[in-house]
């Protein structure tokens, strides 16, 4: 018993208190992102949008201030509701335009993104 108490005391001395991690609550999905004029996003923000048909599309992020394209991704979407993420850790602009184009460069959707 005494040995157990010593071990506990040493463990308390070196281990300190147990830290309880709080699981981050994921931000709510932004529904139909191109249906609103602007959305505020955090890193790894999930959003969804509707596509008229299955096929290749591009999602483009444009710096609203400099008009420079800073990220563009080719995706393959399905007809109807699609879900994707937007990552903001490397993006150094607060205001962005998110543009959705189809394979023929026709604009399907456009909205303003504000990074948080």
């Amino acid at each position: 018993m005494k040995k157990a108490l010593i071990i506990m005391a040493v463990a308390a001395l070196f281990g300190g208190c147990t830290k309880y991690e709080i699981e981050p609550v994921p931000p709510p999905i932004i529904k139909d992102i191109f249906s609103v004029s602007q959305s505020t996003v955090t890193n790894a923000q999930t959003f969804n949008f509707t596509l008229p048909s299955a096929g290749p599309y591009t999602l483009t992020l444009i710096d609203s201030l400099t008009k420079q394209v800073i990220s563009r991704e080719k995706i393959y979407g399905g007809a109807g509701l699609n879900t994707r993420n937007i990552y903001t850790k490397t993006i150094q602009s607060k205001y962005l335009q998110l543009v959705l184009l189809d394979a023929n460069n026709n604009q399907i959707g456009k909205t303003t993104i504000i990074t948080k």
């Binding site: 992020l61 800073i70 990220s71 879900t83 990552y87 490397t90």
Partner: peptide
């Protein structure tokens, strides 16, 4: 495993 990577890379001239 990821479904897409928009913004994971950003390019600046």
């Amino acid at each position: 495993k990821m479904t897409n990577t928009l913004g994971l890379i950003s390019v600046y001239p």
